[in-house]
Amino acid sequence: MTRAMPVLTVLGAIFALWYLAAIWMNATWVYDQAQRAGTTVTLAQVIPQTMAQARPLLPPPHQVAAELWKGVTAQAITSKRSLVYHGYVTFRGTMMGFALGIVLGVALAMAIVRFRVMELSVMPWAIISQTIPIVALAPMILTVSNQIGIDNREVPKAIISAYLSFFPVLVSMVKGLRSPDHMQLDLLSTYGASDGQTFRKLRLPASLPYFFASLKVAIAAALIGTIVGELPTGAIEGLGARMLIGSQFGEPLIMWAALFAAAILAGGLILIVGLIERMAQARMGVPA
């Protein structure tokens, strides 16, 4: 309880500020309407009107919650208007990118730790690759994969998402695979262990805590990548596409509902990865 109190207080303050901001930002529209109608409105009349506009500048929390609820429950979850459906599309893209990113990150890390030439030539470019804003590449990835015969819109999304998520895995795994100290390596060499045995029995187990720690960062990055990938690639489904549609058709409520659906998805994914991390740690005997 002592830990929850401050968080709840801050959350409460955020909601209060949000309501105040909503009244302040949406009031302009109410005053404009009143002026056009030739009437005057008092502040007491303005406030209720700022709470229930169809196209508010800033929708108050209960309107967003209502839209979110409508998006989840008002139709079958396979419907094109259902947020569950769009959320699932984004989730699938995220998972594909996440898996691809993990495989790529681990494979590169293994090669970098094993071969010095890989470290010297690939590592600097891996760092540079992350300073390149991926969104610039996103439309290109779509065009190229389209032209070489991949009609599936999932593939470019997964590539973008993997591009963002492989890096944290790579960096942590390089660190983790190098974490055994000299004593341990020396011990294995006195046993006459081969390179493969050293890798399997020492380096790989030693790297696992680093691996799981990097997964949390990687899953968040994968989700950002998927959503960004849904924006310019002309995707018609997924939470990113919902945001784009809300923006283009001037429907702020759709935009906000998609935004919060994405936030909930992110929270859930991070929670699950955290659980897996804790389970793995428990199995490996790390004190909680």
Binding site: R3, P6, T9, V10, L223, M243, A258, L259, A262
Partner: peptide
Amino acid sequence: KGLLPIGNFVSALPIVGLAPV
């Protein structure tokens, strides 16, 4: 104690979605 957990959570969210707003 109040802001750090929220800040940690928010920095993992796809904030880029706020762009249209």
